[in-house]
Amino acid sequence: MSPELLRSTYGALSATVSDLAPEEGWQPSGCAGWAVLDLTLHLVDDARRGLVALATPAGGPPTTDAVAYWRSWRPTAGQDADTAWRTRVRASATTGLPELAPVYAELVAAVGVAAGRTRPDELLGTQGWVLPAGDLCSTLAVEAAVHHLDLVAHLDRPGPPAAALAEVRRVLEGLLGAPLPAGWDDVTAARRGTGREPLTDADRAALGQVAARFPLFG
């Protein structure tokens, strides 16, 4: 994936974060149990991880790629609850969105510069994995796009760019090994493919046996 798509995905999300009023930090997000402020702290963490990864060359061969990376992301309910609790504690120790929004803006700008300086096939390390820079950029953009939908789930704000949502769909179909239902637009694909929305009876009929594999990542 090109650095330009990552930059546009991060840029749109950062603009939305910067536009939020301080009091909106305690509005619910699309992540169960997470407020907007909690999610914003997570976004800061993920952009920081991306910046570190882009400066962490790794020896080959690759151990994952833009699709396979997500197969390992299946936290248990207990792990989800623990992460939500720890994130809330940390978020509560900040002064809120006015503190986090400029930090996030600085980080995503730095990630964009670093991504532009790497070759797509350059091997990098993150979270114990080795993958090409282009694939790393995809994983960062996919997470940012899904969380952009989470951020605005209960707010009157624009969602992620169309190209970012198309990348989410591409990854979900790669995980499934088959096309998602043609009647799903890319927002629906992102939400249902990651368990943000339940499958309907019609979805299950269209998907057949593979419906049991949903969510494809959470």
Rank of each mutant, 00 (worst) to 15 (best):
E24W: 08
V52N: 01
T63S: 10
A35P: 01
T200S: 15
W70T: 04
R119D: 15
D121C: 12
C31T: 01
L6T: 12
G218Q: 07
D38H: 02
R117D: 12
A205N: 06
T126A: 04
A144N: 09
A93W: 00
G174T: 06
W184C: 14
R48V: 12
Q127E: 06
G96S: 07
L39T: 05
D121A: 15
T200V: 11
T16A: 12
A145V: 03
A178L: 12
P179W: 14
E99Y: 04
A91R: 00
D150K: 01
T87Q: 00
S72K: 00
P28S: 03
A21Q: 09
L37P: 07
A182C: 10
V108G: 06
D150E: 05
V142Y: 12
A58R: 08
A178H: 15
D80T: 08
A66G: 11
P120D: 15
P160K: 09
D203S: 13
P198H: 11
W26M: 06
M1G: 14
L5W: 15
L5G: 15
E167M: 14
A12I: 12
D186P: 09
L124C: 08
A101E: 02
D121H: 14
P28K: 11
V17L: 03
D135H: 10
T188L: 12
M1V: 13
A109I: 02
E173C: 13
A32F: 06
T40L: 02
E167W: 11
A144C: 14
T139F: 06
T83R: 09
P102G: 05
L107A: 11
A32N: 04
A211T: 10
